[in-house]
Amino acid sequence: MLMSSGEQAATLLYGPNGFRVIKPGRFVTCAVTGEPIALEELRYWSVDRQEPYASPEISTRRLLGQA
């Protein structure tokens, strides 16, 4: 999903079972690819690194140090 330039990125606190919105917004940016991820579509993140990921493949690459 493309985000319009007028929309602001959210700031989240990532936990093991979900995330908490610290600063409201409609999306976060994937820590590896830089692509926007709508909050409704966010499913993958690292609690330890506090980073969101666009897909399980990207998350695994990051975990294995390949990204």
Rank of each mutant, 00 (worst) to 15 (best):
T11L: 05
P24R: 02
R43L: 06
G18V: 03
D48V: 14
K23F: 04
E57W: 10
R26S: 14
S46A: 11
G18N: 07
K23N: 11
N17A: 10
E41N: 13
G15T: 15
I58E: 08
N17V: 13
P36Q: 04
E57I: 12
T29N: 12
P56G: 05
V28E: 01
G6S: 12
G15N: 11
T33F: 07
R26P: 03
Q66E: 10
R20E: 15
G65R: 00
E41S: 04
P52S: 15
G15W: 06
P56E: 03
A67S: 15
P24Q: 06
V32R: 08
E7M: 05
S4Q: 08
S59P: 02
R20W: 10
E57R: 12
L39C: 09
L64I: 08
W45Y: 10
A10K: 02
S59M: 06
R61Q: 09
A38R: 05
A38C: 12
E51F: 06
L13C: 10
V32T: 15
F27L: 02
E35D: 13
E51V: 03
S59E: 15
E57P: 05
M1D: 11
S46L: 11
I58V: 12
E57T: 08
Y14N: 04
S59F: 14
E7K: 13
I37P: 00
A54K: 10
K23E: 15
V47T: 07
E40S: 09
L64A: 15
A54C: 13
T33C: 11
T29L: 04
M3H: 03
L64Y: 05
P56T: 03
I58R: 13
P56F: 01
R20F: 15
T33P: 03
K23G: 04
A31H: 07
R49Y: 14
